[in-house]
Amino acid sequence: MPITETHEIHNRRLGRNIGVALTLAAFVAVVFFLTVSKVRNGGSVEAYDHTVRPSITEEDSQ
């Protein structure tokens, strides 16, 4: 038989779930905008593996 009545505990759980969802969304937003800010203000952006890295080649580092 389905539960039709909402107990106080269901409201509390809903509030908790919404809180966690909003916190996670806010965390994602912070990481995203932090990345945008770092890329805009940062130094060189280069791939890491299987590619030439200008920052560690001798000519560029001198």
Partner: peptide, 9 residues
């Protein structure tokens, strides 16, 4: 019911 709400955390 002793179940925590978001505010408790």
């Amino acid at each position: 019911p002793q179940e925590a709400g978001f505010g408790d955390y």
